[in-house]
């Protein structure tokens, strides 16, 4: 259950963003998780309310996006879809492939509400 650790790291990053941007709360969080990241999306979703409770990121909508696993073959040059435990070339079957996508573990985007007074004073 390392998803709780990962989620706590996410919430700390969100806290930093709130401070830096002088926001009052975060309303939406977009996270990209590849099937090969080692993090299970559903467990991260379950951990989020616990990890974010009492922080400005509590109650934010958590959007989890997944990119497909794709590999490029170094032998025949083909780019094909793959699965987590079968990352060989889909055309020639060679295992000398490079992963093109599928191992992402990214905080992609946040949507936030600013403290308008603080923002205004910061600009003047």
């Amino acid at each position: 259950m390392h998803e709780l650790s990962v989620c706590q790291a996410l919430v700390r990053q969100l806290d930093e963003i709130v401070q830096r941007e002088r926001a009052i709360r975060i309303t939406q969080v977009v996270v990209r998780i590849g099937p090969l990241s080692g993090v299970e999306a559903q467990l991260l979703r379950q951990a989020y309310p616990v990890a974010s409770a009492g922080t400005p990121a509590a109650h934010a909508e958590l959007i989890l996006e997944t990119l497909p696993i794709r590999v490029a073959c170094e032998s025949c040059g083909a780019e094909t879809n793959a699965t987590a435990n079968r990352l060989i070339c889909g055309v020639c079957g060679d295992y000398h492939t490079r992963l093109l996508s599928g191992d992402e573990l990214l905080l992609a985007q946040v949507e936030l509400e600013r403290d308008e007074l603080a923002t205004a004073s910061g600009r003047h």
Partner: peptide, 25 residues
């Protein structure tokens, strides 16, 4: 796919959205 002008990037609507693409760990 992931950069600001890529098909998976989102435009801000209403509330302010910030694109980060920062490692979760």
């Amino acid at each position: 796919l992931l950069r600001n002008d890529g098909p998976l990037a989102r435009s801000a609507d209403g509330r302010e959205a910030i694109t980060l693409l920062k490692g979760l760990l």
